[in-house]
Amino acid sequence: MAVVAQRPHALRDIPLHYCPGCTHGISHRLVAEVLDELGIEGETIGISPVGCSYNNYDYFNCDMVQAAHGRAPAVATGVKRSLPDSVVFTYQGDGDLAAIGTAEIVHAAARGENITVVFINNTIYGMTSGQMAPTTLISQVTTTSPYGRNAKDHGNPIRICEMLATLQGPAYIERVSLHDIKHIRQAKKALTKAFRLQREKRGFTLVEMLSTCPTNWGLDPVESMNRVKNEVIPYYPLGVFVDCEKEG
């Protein structure tokens, strides 16, 4: 009998703690599949963030280092500069990466730090129960923007890929979405390329994944996927922002 589906080796056999309909499960699996397929699990060190996925060190089978809120790119820098032949990735949410960790992500990107960043953008703080994130859309209701985000009081949502794409350091930056099968396949391609480029020591790579948070959005899983498609993607357009293989 042929095996048609199985758990990736890089993903440990432990039930995930995420809410029903949350896409962390998908993005975890994609990372694990890429580690398997590129055969790099044994040389990989992952950096866990602060946020809902703080304990993904329990889920991945590679060595893992848990970082302070927003500091994952600095921790990853310390690991990578110590072990230049290893594969190092950070897994960060939008509060972690785009608010408290803005300095760290910008400078890691500017240095062309040879790491891969998996950036989960669900337009909200999940773990602390639904506060406004730097990525929260205008008019989106959160526990700290209960009347809806407005630009005058709260500023505008930050497009991280576009911002980092202005730098010279990044080798590859792509924004993908996890709202349907077709887009999940594209996300896998983007992740595979990012890790491959890191192994080739091409520089900083980042894949932003538009993700869901049904619990804090107050939507069911299907409605959440539809929100990504109909409301989130129009503000955060999908696509490749930097690709070192297509330049010069």
């Binding site: 060190i45 950096i47 280092v65 970082a67 302070a68 500091r71 600095a74 921790v75 990853a76 820098t77 310390g78 690991v79 990578k80 500069r81 110590s82 072990l83 300095a103 760290e104 910008v106 400078h107």
Partner: peptide, 17 residues
């Protein structure tokens, strides 16, 4: 590093390694 905050976290990473 870009700040003392980043520097100590790079220390954290290198020590972890």
């Amino acid at each position: 590093a870009e700040s003392e905050v980043a520097a100590i976290n790079m220390v954290y990473g290198a020590a972890a390694a």
